[in-house]
Amino acid sequence: MGAKWYLGTGAQNDVVINTSIHIARNIRSFPFPSRLSLPEKLKVNSVIRDASEAIDDYSFNYAEMKMLSQSEVVSLAERHLVSPEFASSRDGRALLLTEDEAVSVMLNEEDHIRLQVMYAGFALDEAFKTASSIEEQLSRKLDFAFDDKLGYLTQDPVALGTGMKASVVLHLPALVSTSQITKLIATVSKLGLSLRGSYGEGAAAKGDMFRLSNTITLGISELAAIENLKSIALQIAAQERAAREEIFKTPVIEDRIYRAYGVLKYARMIDTNEFMELISLVRLGAVKGLIKMDCASIEALMIHMQPATISLSVDRPLDRVERDKLRAAMVRQNLG
């Protein structure tokens, strides 16, 4: 698959998996996507595509979603390059994507432009700098819908203002196993942030992966929102480390980690849920130095083992049994 952003190792990567910045923008002279006909959407796509060609330092591949197969689109969603909503209806939608998949731009999703920048590890400042630079270069070519009082205008009034959403994905196995997560989700929501499962929602978050994001877009600057997110993320990371200290005081967790590793290493069939549960334990073991595996390859494995991405790797649709067999084989191979 070539060198992708998630193959790098980032800061704080014992807890922080990755960082992303999303920016929503609309072009003033076109109605929002839900009011556009198909030919008008295609026109919007080509206007934005033209503007993207003038961006320094980044070159984008352009794809009409209609031209991709269902598995390809779902795989893009599994790799968090497009939203599940974007994947569900492909007409008139397009994607701009850099080769390393670090920068993606969804065209005609909820807004004309949904820019996303992803970095491995904890890198809010860097990701924001990149996103702003791309946004700024697009704004030289496109007249964005902006209002002095309301900020950047979006199709859904909930997102208006900065139109920016910053997120960090956190691996919180110890906070989940010590049942602190539910309380944490409630606390965080009072601070203008949201904490939800990154693969699957709420308490059913697969692989103990959670996405922490800002929810406030009006009355606070982008930088203030990012500072706020940064400080809460670091506090949660500190709590997770403290909880890890606690759980490692008994031999139970070590046993669970080695059992998880054993199953992954020898299983002949494995479904997504079981894989995610076990790989979460293996990641915890790797961070603690019990298992010799680097975090970046664990993250890559998590992404590559999702159902549609697996089917894509063999270029044909697979039924559940075939997929679970193939997943087990690929995991065994990766675990050496």
Binding site: S139, G219, I220
Partner: peptide, 30 residues
Amino acid sequence: HGKASYSGSRPQKEASVELRIEELKVALKA
């Protein structure tokens, strides 16, 4: 959003007349 008013970043400068007209023409054609 509360009664907060916008305090985030702003477009660098107002879009030029040429840019606004060019975009409107594309939209008009569509």
